[in-house]
Design a protein around this nucleic acid. Structure first.
Lengths: 213, 213
DNA sequence: TGTTCCACTACATCTTTGTGTAGTTTTGTT
DNA sequence: AACAAAACTACACAAAGATGTAGTGGAACA
């Protein structure tokens, strides 16, 4: 791993103990040039517009005024080369994915030891990414959701029809594909929609994309 | 972090040096009960059916016969409580996401030091997850893809119409929502489909779900 | 003023989708 | 054999979707 130096680090954290403690720790590290800390996103942007810079931003989510997640989006536009690491108590999937979708490159829980925060900064500035293990688990499980509830008891034929729908085929083309009549397609679709309690192809597609069928 | 003990660990790796080296290392660790190694997935399943067990499976991807990824899917069905960690040279997104979607709970690159593999096992068996930093970066960036090519130049109004389509609304309901006539909806949809070179709502939805618009 | 882009509206027409009703055949189980 | 479930087929009809043609008005710009 390459050595780092001269990093400007910004901390956005409303809890004073954490803010000052982390600032003191990082300031004492040789790889940092300037470490500054503010208690809100608004103050962060104010400092940026006054000329302060930040290679790495450590940001809480629950902040007074603008939330950390909202702040990321704006940071993403203004500071293209900065890395944003969430440092927060929140471990719900909603906030995890909103943060990642907004552009965070790291996600650490609040109880992460300072030494590990430093390691995460190293890793991230070297092109990698780091998440607290529990966060990484949720991210990994996002890609392999638990087997869906199959009590909608679709038959094999019905699943074939659904696939044709998802593939964007008209009833006629699905019928051609399966070698049956278009009226049989309609018959099956009637049953499918009843089982799934929907009444349009769009709803079917939404369910499919969400992994519900 | 809780101490672990009595773990059965299986290694599926066709490179003999890595396979034996890793087996020797893990066997010497106090938290392992039994460490066994095979050179293919087929042999892995053969051993399982003969009564061997595995709490953690360390698996390569490029294996003779059945690939590691195909193996995960089968393992996922047979061994619900096992953790599968990929240990591989491949760092392409295709394989990363296929592995995660198949159910892997960790993903390590081949050059990961043995000590770090051990730490990853600890983390994963304690409910977390661990990925090599470069892998984690690709996973994180998956959630914040680069800004999409916007040269389909949809107008603001067209985007509103698309949103109504994605929400599953009929033309009539979209018209109601926007306070315009249904003929205007049709007019916009004609333009939208021309710009996107599609001709059905399903194709529009597919593009939307893929993030192309 | 003229041009371009955008939004809005209307009409016409054909295709596709969705739902109800009715009946036959096939397959699997008891 | 009887029964249930699944699959297949047909007809009817209304609503929704897709596409072409035509026209008006507003905003921005040269």
């Amino acid at each position: 791993m390459n050595e780092l130096s001269n990093l400007d680090i910004a901390i956005v954290e409303d809890d004073q103990v954490v803010r000052e403690g982390l600032k003191d720790y990082l300031q004492s590290e040789a790889f940092t040039k300037n470490v500054w800390a503010v208690e809100s996103m608004e103050l962060f942007f104010e400092s940026i517009s006054k000329g302060k810079s930040a290679d790495v931003i450590l940001s809480d989510i629950g902040l007074p005024g603008m939330s950390g997640i909202e702040g990321i989006k704006l940071i993403r536009e203004k500071l293209k080369k900065s890395d944003i690491i969430m440092l927060t108590v929140f471990k719900d999937e909603n906030r995890i994915f909103k943060s990642l979708c907004a552009g965070a490159t790291g996600y650490l829980l609040k109880d992460t030891p300072f030494e590990e925060i430093k390691q995460a900064i190293y890793i991230i500035r070297n092109g990698g990414s780091f998440m607290s293990p529990a966060i990484a688990r949720k991210v990994v499980e996002h890609f392999n959701p638990l087997p869906q509830n199959s009590d909608n008891n679709l038959t094999a034929r019905e699943k074939q029809i659904i696939q044709g729908m998802v593939d964007g085929l008209s009833y006629k083309l699905i019928a051609d594909r399966l070698g049956i009549s278009i009226d049989t397609i309609r018959y099956h679709i009637k049953n499918i929609y009843n089982k799934l309690q929907i009444n349009s192809r769009t709803q079917l597609l939404n369910k499919s994309f969400r992994g519900e069928i």
